[in-house]
Simulated scan of single mutants.
Amino acid sequence: MNKLVYAAASALLMFGLVACQSKITDEEAKKIALEDAKVKEAEVTFTSEGMEDDEYIFHFQSKSDSYFYEISKTGKIEEKQVIPMAQNMPEIEKDKTSSNGQKISQDEALTIAYEKFQVSLENVKNVKVKLDKENGIEVYDIEFDAGNKEYSCDISTTTGEILNFDSDAR
């Protein structure tokens, strides 16, 4: 009888541990991001989705904001960023970002990117930098490889702010 009670208790404990660590699907993770952003899927455009380091990664945009979410497989929001779109910036900011004077250099932008992705300069290969516009803002469009990943980001030439970023396994 004691063996039966012990076996039943062990089975319940194991079931409880497995249930507590249940993993969510990518669709469930997407739903968590949308609910947190207080937007509906029909109101946004997904610009990238994927997995990185066992976390779901989502970039999406509404008419007013750009969103970035990292969600763990347990459903916890590990990181999120909300960036106002350029058309919603105050008029003074629009004037500032449309100026032709660059406030940061290409080298400074690269340093910002390397720090964001926590890569060391000696591991970086195939660096590409071009001047571009993202939502009306002049940016450095930066791409490079490090280790077994490809990295990309857009950095404002006037503020040094990372406007969007992505990394993918090669």
Score class of each variant (00 low, 15 high):
5 V>F: 09
6 Y>D: 07
7 A>S: 13
8 A>D: 06
10 S>R: 00
10 S>H: 05
15 F>I: 12
17 L>Y: 13
19 A>R: 14
20 C>Q: 13
20 C>F: 10
21 Q>I: 03
22 S>H: 14
23 K>W: 03
23 K>P: 07
24 I>M: 07
30 K>F: 10
31 K>H: 11
33 A>M: 12
34 L>V: 14
40 K>T: 06
45 T>I: 15
45 T>P: 02
46 F>P: 10
46 F>M: 09
47 T>M: 07
48 S>K: 15
50 G>I: 10
51 M>I: 09
52 E>G: 05
57 I>P: 05
58 F>V: 08
61 Q>V: 14
62 S>H: 03
62 S>L: 08
62 S>P: 13
66 S>Q: 14
69 Y>C: 03
69 Y>T: 08
72 S>L: 06
75 G>I: 00
80 K>T: 13
83 I>S: 07
83 I>C: 01
86 A>E: 10
86 A>V: 01
86 A>T: 04
87 Q>I: 14
92 I>V: 13
95 D>P: 10
97 T>M: 10
99 S>V: 04
100 N>A: 09
100 N>Q: 08
121 L>Q: 14
122 E>W: 02
124 V>M: 00
128 K>P: 00
129 V>S: 07
130 K>W: 05
130 K>C: 05
132 D>C: 01
135 N>Q: 11
137 I>E: 10
141 D>Y: 02
142 I>H: 02
142 I>M: 07
145 D>M: 04
152 S>Q: 13
153 C>I: 07
156 S>Q: 06
157 T>S: 02
158 T>P: 01
160 G>I: 04
160 G>F: 02
160 G>C: 05
162 I>T: 10
165 F>R: 08
167 S>T: 12
168 D>I: 11
